[in-house]
Amino acid sequence: MKYHTPYSFEEAAKIAAQASGTTRFLAGGTDVLVQMRAGIVLPEELIDLKKIPGVFDMIRNEDGRWRIGAAVPGAKLGANDALVADWPGVVEGMELVGSTQVQGRATLTGNLCNGSPAADGVPALVAAGASVDITGPNGTRTIAVEDIPAGPGKTTLTKGEVISAINLPARGNNGGDAYLRFIPRTEMDIAVVGCAVNLTLDGDVIVAAKVALGAVAPTVIVADEAAKAILGTTLDDAALDKLAAAASAAANPISDKRGSREFRIEVAGVLARRAAKIAYARAKGE
């Protein structure tokens, strides 16, 4: 295995594009090193992105948009009060990944690129309308986060492409987001179901909403019907019932070691209801 430490994303993309064998990018390493140790992935080229200027930056633009560098670890997200104020759901999603120790290394970008349908960092990004900046051998492009996952362990990134940063839109006024996941223990588990809700209010009425579900399909899914169920409402009980039903209806999970299909469908609705209440309270400034 060759270990590379490029100083620009262009250089990183070039190394990856020219590689003949298995290639991995390294930021936090909390997935890559596990796969290497288990012999699941034995890369010939390992490209460490952490020497590239700006990869640890978290920048809030004047218009309120955020740009989060590819190597920013979870612990730094939670320590950024302005980010927590704008996008608490995004931060709490990432902070659920692994232990305190893992939070010292694991990154949002890595969580996305690992391609797990159960990635805790991803649903809130999708609900927030986040995008990623990609550098490839043919230049750069920006696409929505939900267009990255392509199935378990797979992404739509092509050979040589590397994500340089994640962009979050401006929070704006009267907005709130939240992420909840279900795990059997209190920590250290992979989500059996995850649900993010992002909404904006006009007075008490929800005027914009996006609901994303994790671990209930091969990729994170956007549950449009669930969002519609609460649009124009004050999140009354009837709206919550419709939301839960729509979230459950959107879920199309498998049964596996972590939970049955029936359980996941049921709990998708439960989490949607609970996450929506938190997001609503946050939007109200409560």
């Binding site: 936090g28 390493g29 090193l33 952490k50 670890p73 120790q101 893992v102 010292g104 290394r105």
Partner: peptide, 18 residues
């Protein structure tokens, strides 16, 4: 568990070269 530049990490998830 060790700390690297003051951050708590699992040393099994850090490469020696890092």
């Amino acid at each position: 568990s060790v700390t690297v530049d003051g951050t708590l990490v699992c040393s099994c998830l850090v490469l020696g070269v890092e």
